[in-house]
């Protein structure tokens, strides 16, 4: 796991969650800006997932490969799925849905980081 990238994604998620909650509090639907920010974070997630897969192939050690792969898959889909569910009904609660997805991604990243033992040679 690239610590810098994980930190960046986590911060991005925090911003997404904050924007979502603000939209919810002020009863605003999500705008293009929200979705662009979500796409940006998702791009970083994609890079992290590719790096992690390359690391695994290169002999990196994880505490449970199946679990780690499950985390990778979840991390990859949670934001797009959350964004789709959020804009499925455009009202103040869309922001809440986006915040839930972003926070779920943060938790997943923390769990991924905790089972990532060491990068391979």
């Amino acid at each position: 796991m690239r610590d810098g990238l994980v930190t960046a994604i986590s911060l991005g998620c925090a911003v997404l969650a904050l924007l979502g909650v603000i939209a919810m509090i002020f009863r605003r639907p999500l705008g293009v800006g929200h979705l662009a920010a979500t796409a940006l974070v998702e791009l970083a997630v994609l890079v992290q997932v590719v790096l992690a897969v390359i690391g695994l192939a290169g002999g990196a050690e994880v505490d449970g490969v199946a679990l780690f792969v499950a985390y990778l898959a979840f991390a990859l889909v949670v934001l797009p799925a959350g964004a789709l569910w959020a804009v499925g009904e455009k009202n103040r609660w869309s922001g809440g849905v986006l915040a839930v997805a972003a926070l779920a991604l943060v938790v997943t990243l923390v769990r991924m980081d905790s089972v990532w033992l060491a990068s391979g040679g």
Partner: peptide, 11 residues
């Protein structure tokens, strides 16, 4: 708000 609930349940 039910959609937020469903999101948490899905996670």
């Amino acid at each position: 708000v039910g959609r937020v609930l469903v999101a948490v349940y899905a996670v």
